[in-house]
């Protein structure tokens, strides 16, 4: 790919990305959004976070294996438990990382 084409991709990619992020904030004032739409907005954060977490922990596409095949899923489940009890981000990360490292040592 020529360097000119690369710059086209970068500038076009910048515009495309910015368009998604600015879409509502800059161009659609909240009073122009229908009420049902605004009611849904408080569900965006839990939905996106759950979607990102689930795909990161379980992976996608392949058939699901036994939990033992998923050290990240088990470490993530433990971290969720710690997050729920402690509400502490660092403690959650620490627990999850430690679990993953330990399983790496034990299972190899």
């Amino acid at each position: 790919m020529s360097e000119e084409a690369l710059w086209v991709v970068i500038l076009g990619g910048m515009a495309a990305t910015y368009a998604t992020r600015a879409s509502f904030i800059v161009f659609v004032p909240p009073e122009r959004m229908p009420a049902w739409f605004r009611r849904g907005l408080r569900f965006v954060a839990p939905a996106v976070l759950a979607g990102l977490v689930a795909t990161e922990l379980v992976g996608t596409g392949e058939a699901l294996n036994l939990p033992l095949g998923y050290p990240r899923l088990m470490a993530g489940a433990l971290a969720a438990l710690v997050a729920w009890r402690s509400r502490n981000t660092w403690l959650t990360i620490l627990a999850g990382m430690a679990a993953l490292w330990l399983m790496g040592v034990v299972i190899g």
Binding site: G12, G13, A16, L41
Partner: peptide, 22 residues
């Protein structure tokens, strides 16, 4: 095609934009 792919991958950001707009 690459620019379009970038746009699609980032579509979820429009939801964040809507969520923070208010």
């Amino acid at each position: 095609i690459i620019i379009l792919a970038i746009f699609i991958v980032n579509l979820r950001h429009a939801l964040y934009s809507a969520s923070f707009s208010e």
